[in-house]
Amino acid sequence: MERPTRQEVLRWHAEICAGLADPTRILILYELAEGPRTGTELARRLGLPQSTVARHLRVLASRGLVIPSRKGGVVEYLLADHRVLQALDLMRAVLIDRVHPYRHIAG
């Protein structure tokens, strides 16, 4: 298998970031960290219309961030890679430091 070019890696990176560029999609990823969920379960847990959740799940699946899996007549979604949550947690820490820049310095 050929090694991806720098441009391919940058494009993939941008696609993943675009998939993360919505607060609802981030919430969905954190919900899926607890285990596989159906769109209906996610809608109920997040208090959102099922159509909204379905739209966001399609975006996440198209970016390879979630994996749909058919179980009988129902589709369950699972997190494709838990390292995405580590990246989100790191970004959150950066943002918190931006709001509270001196919080980690002992007084």
Rank of each mutant, 00 (worst) to 15 (best):
Y77Q: 01
R103A: 07
W12N: 13
G19T: 09
R92G: 06
E41G: 06
L65I: 03
I96E: 15
R98Q: 12
R44K: 12
M1L: 13
S62F: 11
G72L: 08
S69H: 06
I16G: 07
L27W: 05
R44C: 03
R70T: 13
A106K: 08
W12T: 05
G35Q: 03
R92P: 02
C17V: 15
G64L: 07
M1S: 14
L65N: 02
I16Q: 13
D81Q: 02
P68N: 07
D22E: 13
L29D: 00
L78F: 03
Q50Y: 11
L65T: 00
L95P: 00
S62R: 15
R11Q: 15
D97K: 03
G47N: 04
P49D: 14
V99T: 06
R37Q: 07
A21Q: 13
P68S: 06
D22G: 09
L79E: 00
E2T: 10
R25G: 06
Y102V: 14
Y77I: 10
Q7S: 13
I96Y: 12
R6M: 04
T24Y: 02
L65S: 04
W12D: 11
R70E: 07
L90T: 05
R6S: 10
A80N: 01
T38M: 01
L10K: 12
R63N: 12
I16R: 15
I105N: 00
I67N: 01
G64D: 01
I96Q: 12
H13Q: 13
L57G: 02
L57V: 08
